[in-house]
Design a protein around this nucleic acid. Structure first.
Lengths: 151, 151
DNA sequence: GATAATCCTATTATAATAATAGGATTAGTG
DNA sequence: CACTAATCCTATTATTATAATAGGATTATC
């Protein structure tokens, strides 16, 4: 039930990055963020780890430490965040690897549907930056980079 | 791993409907379809049931029976099929019911992202009919100028 | 009456998700 | 220099959804 669902990993990752973007240059601890959103701190730690390894956030240990964005909020898209913690957007497995190597390519045109869906999802995710998210008027008046010709 | 995935229910449902569309007005048995795609017949039966209850296919029992489309292939979209067997496209739960009733609405603009993604998915799925899928030249030559929003 | 199909309900195996647990390391503060 | 607050790291477990299996009842054709 409920197709094309995003797991909590991607969901929470965007939430954390959104909070870091709001905090500007200062460091925010996962303890604060997890308490605010009533989430498990340990779970958030697991989720933030790949974001750090991908160079999207910087961690600072010890008292007064926490996380902060490693790049400007306008240079981090929601798509980067989601794909970093969840992997590529591939709605149906057969698009990546061929489940039925003989028949699939010639026979099954449905494959093109799933490819289109994946591209549409990526397009939306890549068109929204963290800077967009923290804009007062989002989503009513999008501005900066990204293609929003079809909004 | 792999966000926005479609489960096999939706995948197989489209596959079956695609086969029925190719068969035209005649009846195709799930035994044939499941054998051809190397899938479990019992599992397909479970998947086809809601399609029948929704009036998308008609079943005929007994020798020579099987399933056939209940409407013209041009009047059945991939979106209808997927939503019938999987439910509505809601990438993140908080969009439907409010996980954090107090904070979410005011505070979390990420919500708008998930709504946009859901709409983009629906748009693609609703723009493709079974008649499109069985066209010789799909998807190379869409009938009307790239964007096929219907109705 | 044999057979081929849908139709129906319940149960189970598998895998992915979502966490929990427990600790090691690092850096400021009194 | 201890104390504390934070990241950092690895492993295990609970929960859930998915994917299927099993077994039968019904209906239509030959």
């Amino acid at each position: 039930m409920m197709p094309f669902r995003l797991s909590t990993r991607g969901h929470y990752a965007v939430l954390v990055m959104y909070e870091l973007a709001k905090a500007g240059g200062s460091y925010s601890s996962l303890q604060d963020i997890s308490a605010y959103w009533s989430l498990s701190q340990g779970y958030l730690e697991q989720i933030v780890r790949p974001l750090r390894e991908a160079g999207l956030v910087e961690g600072k240990r010890g008292f007064g430490g926490g996380y902060t964005l490693a790049k400007d909020a306008s240079e981090i898209t929601v798509g980067e965040i989601v794909r970093t913690v969840e992997g590529p957007v591939v709605p149906v497995q057969c698009v990546a690897d061929d489940l039925h190597p003989e028949r699939c390519p010639d026979d099954c045109r449905a494959k093109a549907v799933w490819q289109k869906v994946g591209q549409a999802i990526d397009h939306v995710l890549d068109s929204i930056t963290l800077a967009d998210l923290i804009r007062e008027d989002f989503p009513s008046t999008p501005t900066s980079k990204g293609d929003r010709s079809r909004d």
